[in-house]
Design a protein around this nucleic acid. Structure first.
Lengths: 142, 142
DNA sequence: TGGAATTCAATTGCACACAATCTAATTTTA
DNA sequence: TAAAATTAGATTGTGTGCAATTGAATTCCA
């Protein structure tokens, strides 16, 4: 039953690593009053300014059951605005507010700090990033 | 602001991959009426038969706030038993029941099926496993 | 063109995660 | 040895994730 040993399971390593990384973000993001998933939404919006809930879901691989309440919390914090589209009333577009746009400056040093905190080597980054993105890509429809 | 681009963030890849993997377990584990974290607990118990809540937490890197309710659900399903230690009454030891032990046979083919479903290559396994476990190890105290 | 199918977001319900706090038991140490 | 500190687990509260369902809007197509 070697296959059933916890320590041999690659998937458990992924699961543990994901939570480890999130825990390293927590003190940095807590200072901005953001959670990690909320930070990911802000990242996407800093890049695109306006995105529909569906487009956000595709980028973050999250569905409306996760995003709708998360976006409501960001709206309460005045970082975003939810605007139902005039052209297609099924669509809700997420806009950055001025405060949301300003937060980008405060978040500018987070990637550097995380990389330092996690202690990623150049080799790790250069190996892991393309290999994992390749796995994600070949399951892109899920 | 290249660093703040979502697509450049290694940590987002970890986060997305973890959820992708869990989603591949779901149909297999659903047939056994287990969630992925519950499956991880069963894996640890199939290997060790009896573990304290603390020992489980160390292996899975989860705290009692997560484990206590999860273990209660496994106990309701009659897969485990929670037994407070006689020697040190602060400790709760988790025992496998007969049903819990029997479930191991039904789960025996899951690692193979997941590997197939995810399509991991030998190279991916041989590269990712040691590299990620090395990252986890150097943060082992968290 | 009008009913069927599809799409988008919201809602509901359940199960994690985890910070913070609490209680009880044990160990340390002054 | 008794008070202080530590430890183990439970509890509370907040915020995800995600399956399943719903409802409204739009598109398809016979």
């Amino acid at each position: 039953m070697k296959q059933l040993k916890l320590s041999n399971q690659l998937c458990f390593s992924f699961y543990a690593l994901s939570r480890l990384v999130t825990s390293h973000y927590q003190p940095l993001l807590g200072a901005l009053d953001l959670t990690y998933p909320q930070y990911l939404v802000m990242l996407a919006l800093w890049e695109h300014d306006i995105l529909s809930v569906k487009a956000l879901g595709q980028q973050l691989m999250l569905d409306s059951g996760t995003l709708t309440p998360l976006l409501k919390r960001l709206e309460i914090k005045k970082l975003i605005k939810r605007v139902r589209s005039k052209e297609d009333e099924r669509i809700v577009n997420i806009h950055l507010t001025t405060a949301g746009r300003q937060l980008q400056q405060e978040a500018a040093d987070i990637p550097e700090k995380i990389s330092c905190s996690m202690g990623f080597t150049t080799e790790e980054y250069n190996t892991l990033k393309p290999m994992i993105d390749n796995i994600l890509k070949r399951h892109a429809d899920e």
